[in-house]
Design a protein around this nucleic acid. Structure first.
Lengths: 194, 194
DNA sequence: CGCGACGTTGATTTGCCTCAACGATTGTGG
DNA sequence: CCACAATCGTTGAGGCAAATCAACGTCGCG
């Protein structure tokens, strides 16, 4: 039952009957993504929402001056995409790159719209997901306001210890909005003071 | 026809028949909000989504050190709320305050859920709104990364000249993430160099 | 009029970046 | 299986954008 993970995920929000489960299973595509390869690239429309079965991916973009900025780091059982590109079906401005060999399940924009038309329960599911994603992003933005780099790191490390272990430090730094050198200095200071 | 503005707003996303329009009109409450009064306060659950017919409001929160941070500035025909509190129906962490005497139209959480159950078209509308709001907030966050305070101000002033005129400068500064003193210096520099 | 809200200006401080050089580890082709 | 190159992390010196602090100007309003 390859789609079990993603169906369980959905049933946390809405309950589904057999017909709905089958309709959904039919539109899920499972893929293996090799480390360092991309599922979204600037200039191309992001056509899928991606659910990570296992592995790790990140989204990031590159400013005109050439520096990388990580927008999201996602691991097992999270979703990732260029949500702006997906929603508006316009060319992406982000890269979405696998940090490890990963297994993902994807559903395409067209199939989402279709299944939402056919089954209002999915309309509801995607409304709740969008609301939750938005609320979560608002909250993250809030909780970072007025914090120093050290405070942001401590909070993140406490919240997502698995990510700290699995993901290279310079990517964490880029996600937390600081230089890798500065994160290194923060960690040194924390290690000596504990 | 008091509900005209908000119905027009909805019909930009989905088309409604007479029955749906009537059902929606029935749950809209119109209120006048006096300058300096609050429609959301920390500790209380945010029970409404608020559509501004005319006037200006902002949402902000206060960090433990006592400093104010403006999250959103909204004027005629925009929506505002503590979206996190609304979505999860948990106590708010934001204030939402009127900056001018304003006229708003509100719909309650319970009524939104009810009308979504009864009419899938509204489920669709609120999904699209949540998706758009999320995509927009992502995009704003993106476009600010790696920018100096001056660049952020110039961009905002170009995008929303009406807001620059109508809203006190220290609130703009707080929204753009800089001190009021520094915004003053930026404006002085820009005035002399043009 | 006088008070409070808002904006300005200058002096000083600081959090974090940039640059540069140097380990440590990993992996990869010969 | 080793050599060499990437990749990643560390350390220190110097610099800058923006915050903080403090004082003063100005306007509208009760």
């Amino acid at each position: 039952m390859k789609d079990l993970a993603i169906l369980q995920h959905i049933e946390r929000f809405v309950s589904l009957n057999e017909e709905e489960k089958n309709a959904f299973s039919a539109i899920v595509e499972e893929h293996i993504i090799k480390r360092k390869s991309f599922i979204v690239q600037p200039g191309f429309v992001c056509k899928h929402q991606t659910h990570i079965v296992r592995g790790a991916l990140r989204s990031y973009f590159i400013t005109p001056d050439g520096s990388e900025h990580t927008i999201a780091i996602a691991i097992d059982d999270w979703w990732i995409s260029d949500f702006y590109s997906y929603t508006s079906q316009t060319p992406a401005s982000l890269y979405v790159e696998a940090l490890e060999d990963s297994v993902v399940q994807q559903i395409s924009y067209d199939n989402v719209e279709r299944i939402c038309n056919d089954h209002p329960r999915f309309e509801r599911f995607f409304r709740l997901v969008a609301q939750k994603a938005f609320a979560y992003s608002q909250r993250r933005a809030l909780s970072n306001i007025g914090k120093t780099a050290e405070e942001r790191y401590l909070e993140y490390a406490e919240m997502y210890p698995q990510i700290i272990q699995r993901i290279p430090q310079y990517i964490i730094a880029s996600y937390l909005g600081m230089s890798p050198e500065f994160l290194s200095k923060i960690r040194k200071k924390l290690a000596s003071s504990s």
